[in-house]
């Protein structure tokens, strides 16, 4: 068996390679498909921090994904119509600059994650799952019933937002942006895993009492992890909206939360590249099996069942040696 680190490099190179080959062969659809996998992987990397390392099984991460999406939708739609978001007490105008949108998405989703975490971390186990689910659904219904930004129909943005120096409408360039962000975030998460915070957070997951007894507060650790986790998933939401040039309440739906969780389980819980492998596999299955039948989720269900029953470490667990976090 190969080491997990080596396996991760192969996965990253495969994704990059797929996009580059598609670019050379002039297959924009394939590039877009790869980009989608990269963005969904980013959402999964966010959830994996809370779920894998923190042990916080959140079924409400669609809240952050959707917030990121709507951060893009709201800002870009105002820029599109040249109307300000608000005029009093101070003027806020829309924008179609990606970096600004990302910043807003990160700030909005981390604030939201902080508040949701503050309230739901008082519970644990099944109750935590239910409370996070409830918060996600609250935002879902809120987005449906808010007509100013499309309500149920969502919001269309006609031109992809801009990034200084790049033509974001060129699929390979937009892929490049998303891939670079994914790699940066994965690097950050990897550093975090090995940091004092990572040691304490993973300790709190295994035994909260132990962490408490050495004088650390598990609640604060988990709240911080949940907040960062929400911020990453929110950033993914903004990119996802830009990929589709469309946002709708679907991004807030509990099915979205479930899918993000499925990436992690497929790829390997708490594995650095678990969500990446999982999201790539998900997109492949959706594309291949979806072509065979509209009911492709049946096959996904069978595969998921097999992974849960026979490969608890997910695909990475089955193919690569476990890497110890702190050596």
């Amino acid at each position: 068996m190969i080491s997990e680190r080596f396996f991760n490099y192969i996965v990253a190179l495969l994704i990059l390679g797929t996009a580059l080959v598609a670019w050379v062969m002039d297959e924009p659809f394939l590039i877009t498909l790869t980009t989608k996998a990269v963005i969904l992987a980013l959402a999964g990397v966010g959830l994996n921090l809370a779920l894998g390392q923190g042990g916080l099984i959140s079924l409400g991460h669609a809240a952050f994904f959707g917030l990121g999406g709507y951060a893009m939708g709201v800002l870009a739609s105002h820029a599109q119509t040249f109307t300000p978001l608000m005029e009093a007490p101070f003027l806020i105008v829309g924008t179609n600059s990606m970096p600004v949108i990302w910043l807003v998405a990160i700030v909005a989703s981390s604030l939201c994650a902080f508040v949701i975490g503050l309230l739901s971390l008082r519970t644990s186990g099944v109750y935590f799952i239910m409370v996070t689910l409830a918060f996600g659904q609250m935002l879902y219904y809120f987005s449906i019933s808010w007509p100013a930004y499309g309500g149920e129909d969502g919001l269309s943005i006609y031109v992809r937002n801009s990034f200084p120096g790049l033509n974001t409408l060129d699929p390979i360039q937009f892929f490049g942006i998303c891939f670079a962000i994914l790699m940066l975030v994965i690097y950050g998460v990897s550093r975090l895993t090995h940091s004092p915070f990572g040691l304490a957070l993973n300790g709190a997951r295994q035994n909260a009492q132990r962490v408490h007894t050495v004088g650390l507060n598990p609640f604060k650790l988990q709240l911080a992890a949940f907040t960062i986790s929400g911020a990453i998933t929110g950033l993914a939401g903004a990119l996802f909206a830009d990929l589709n040039r469309f946002v709708s309440p679907t991004m807030f739906s509990w099915q979205t939360s479930g899918e993000i969780m499925i990436f992690i389980i497929l790829g390997g819980v708490a594995r650095l590249y678990g969500p990446v492998v999982g999201a790539a596999l998900f997109i492949l299955l959706e594309h291949w099996l979806g072509g065979l039948s509209d009911f492709w989720h049946v096959y996904l269900g069978i595969i998921l069942l097999c992974v849960v029953l026979f490969a608890r470490g997910g695909l990475i667990g089955a193919l690569a040696k476990k890497e110890r976090a702190h050596v």
Partner: peptide
């Protein structure tokens, strides 16, 4: 790792996100 957790609890600084703890 278990004992490092204790040492970390004593010294404080669990909210450092970047430096590898095992190299501290």
């Amino acid at each position: 790792e278990n004992v490092m957790l204790g040492a970390l609890g004593k010294r404080g600084g669990a909210f450092r996100f970047f430096k590898p703890v095992m190299k501290d």
